[in-house]
Amino acid sequence: MNLLPFVVAGLVIGSVYALSGVGVLVLYRTTGVLNFAHGAIGGLAAMLAWQFIENGLPASAAIALCVTIGAAVSLVFGVVAGPYLGRIDELRKAVATLGFSLALLGLMLYLWNDKARRLLLPTSLTGFSVGNGEAHARVNLTQLICLTLAIVVVTGAALALRYTAIGTAMRALASDRELAAVLGTSVRLVENAAWAVSGAIAGISGVLVADQTRLEPAFLTFLVIPELAAVVVGRFRSLGMTMVAGLVIGLVQSLVSSQPSITAFSTAVPFVIATVVILAGTRRRTVTIGVVRA
């Protein structure tokens, strides 16, 4: 059996997981919010891109618009809910975004219903072949973009966090918010930047993955599952590990789905991989003595 097409597809999807995972991670490290709505924001961007293209907008303009919308939606949530989220613990912050994802999903289902559509980017029409004989696969331009973008964004994020002013501020916030605020970091500004950046990443991921798989609100919303799995494997801190985990999850999922007898279990792959990594880790629950909230 020629597995190469599955390897290609898996790496491509995996690179989108990696890309998104990094978007989730940057937001989490900066604001403490683990964004369960990341997939839904991407889904909304993809659905809108389809709508705009249907209405005659050129694909490039539609995509640019949708990435902007992704950033805007994320930013608005960050700006509106941010002050409240700042007062509650991490788990509740995450639950709040879960509610947001539900609202976005409902909105998408209301506007477009759950019929599967097809978002075909023009870049998917050109491509080239790799391999020869039995093992060969076709790689199109969109897939190449996915892989390149993931590498560029992850490297870019790592460099930006280290060398730019806003990146330094984000790292400062991640380690100690109060101290960062005292030292003159504008907490709100940095947080809003993180919401916008992660929203833009969600938007572009949504559009890309919709082209590669299917354009369906619930499916795109729950793509947050493998993305979060990548973040868990990255231990909520490592950009590099999150990226590798995203790629591995995508690859394994694709290979599992290539075998007809176990194809249904490909959705369990994020869970299995994350669980194995958790079990392999030796770090135990740490006992912290907290201040009791009334």
Partner: peptide
């Protein structure tokens, strides 16, 4: 979904 999501 929208109402309950925002309600959450």
């Amino acid at each position: 979904f929208v109402i309950l999501g925002l309600g959450t």
